[in-house]
Deep mutational scan, measured.
Amino acid sequence: MSIQHFRVALIPFFAAFCLPVFAHPETLVKVKDAEDQLGARVGYIELDLNSGKILESFRPEERFPMMSTFKVLLCGAVLSRVDAGQEQLGRRIHYSQNDLVKYSPVTEKHLTDGMTVRELCSAAITMSDNTAANLLLTTIGGPKELTAFLHNMGDHVTRLDRWEPELNEAIPNDERDTTMPAAMATTLRKLLTGELLTLASRQQLIDWMEADKVAGPLLRSALPAGWFIADKSGASERGSRGIIAALGPDGKPSRIVVIYTTGSQATMDERNRQIAEIGASLIKHW
């Protein structure tokens, strides 16, 4: 058993032996400061991975655009179909130039040979490839079927209504393609630790998130040596930015963190910096 498999397999085991986890309101002070700095709403939640207890939250039940963070949920739905014998990670999917949409750094290189379902999930999560996400959405029946999958998990909040890139429109008060921090954190925890997916599929999902290559300026920039993080970021119109993550010290995840912001006029660099500073406060007061 690899170190990674050891880590995921023991998450339920550690729940019975973990020390009490204490919240630190200092992080919420930073979240509120980020709102002031960005001139935008910020949603935040910090969840204990083992118990599911909410440690801190700010606007946990307000809607925010999901942006590309939905791609983790999408690959969770794909893995659920794999577990049920309805899909194979090794199945190759062929597509054409007409299928390519904006920001497809991986799929645009494989027009001649296509990509496997496994490769598409990797591209969608680690590189946020939009065509990969659309191709995967097609395999499960489209955005409405992803919403149905989430409903069956008990998440009646999170919804996907459109495809890439239209889902990134982020119109104020538009509930399409949105979630709430509390709903996203709970759903992510179920995917990573619950019985919905097999152990192998849970491991695969967290491996893809751990290999994320496009979230460096966010929480990863504040991470001390030896800490673990598996994450997925997102960005969209109207100053929207977000990240969902499982992270913790000693090389294993122990908390879920979800951060969303929307409605800012700030630059992408400034949005990144504010999220990184929230992460730094979280780690300092861990």
Rank of each mutant, 00 (worst) to 15 (best):
L167P: 02
Y260F: 11
D83R: 01
I125A: 00
T158R: 00
D83C: 01
R59L: 01
H24Q: 07
M184Y: 04
P65F: 02
T126L: 04
T193L: 12
I93R: 02
A84R: 14
D83A: 02
V8C: 15
I243V: 10
S2V: 12
R238Q: 13
T179Q: 00
A182R: 15
I206Y: 08
S57F: 08
H5N: 14
R241Y: 04
T139Q: 14
L247R: 00
G52R: 02
F58V: 06
K53V: 14
F17V: 13
R159W: 04
S264R: 07
R41L: 08
L199T: 15
R271Q: 13
L160G: 01
Q88T: 13
R81T: 04
L223Y: 01
T267N: 13
R81A: 09
C18Y: 10
D99V: 09
T267G: 12
R176T: 06
N173Y: 12
A280E: 14
A222R: 14
F13S: 10
E175A: 11
A276L: 07
E210S: 10
I3V: 09
Q97A: 15
E87A: 04
I256V: 09
S68R: 00
T193S: 13
L19F: 15
F6T: 09
G263D: 13
P181Q: 00
L137R: 00
L282S: 01
L223P: 00
S240T: 06
G251L: 08
L111G: 04
T178N: 02
R63T: 06
P20S: 11
S2T: 13
L146Y: 02
Y44R: 00
T186N: 13
N173G: 15
P181H: 00
L197Q: 02
V78T: 06
W163D: 05
I140N: 00
Q88L: 12
T186P: 06
K252Q: 12
Y44F: 09
L38G: 05
M153V: 10
I11L: 09
E46V: 10
A170L: 10
N50K: 13
L73K: 00
A200P: 13
R255V: 13
A183G: 05
D212H: 03
Q97T: 15
K284R: 12
G142R: 01
I93S: 01
M268S: 07
R189H: 13
I3T: 13
R189L: 10
F149N: 03
V78L: 05
R91G: 02
D161V: 03
P249D: 03
L219F: 07
P253R: 04
A40H: 03
R238N: 15
R7V: 10
L10Q: 06
T126Q: 09
K213M: 14
S201T: 05
N173D: 14
L10W: 09
M268A: 07
D174G: 05
I206S: 12
A84G: 13
N98M: 15
A222M: 10
L188P: 00
P20H: 07
M268C: 06
N272M: 01
A215N: 03
L223I: 13
A148G: 12
E166S: 12
L167S: 05
L55A: 02
A200V: 11
D113Q: 13
L192V: 08
T186K: 15
T158A: 02
G242H: 01
A211G: 11
N98D: 09
R7A: 13
T126R: 04
V106C: 09
D207E: 14
K30S: 05
D212A: 02
H110R: 08
R118G: 15
F6G: 08
T158Q: 11
E56L: 04
A215E: 05
T138S: 15
M268Y: 08
E145L: 09
P172A: 12
M66L: 14
L19G: 13
S221E: 09
R273C: 08
A182V: 15
A215L: 01
T262N: 09
Y44D: 00
S80K: 14
K252C: 11
P65H: 07
I3F: 13
N50R: 15
F14S: 07
V82C: 13
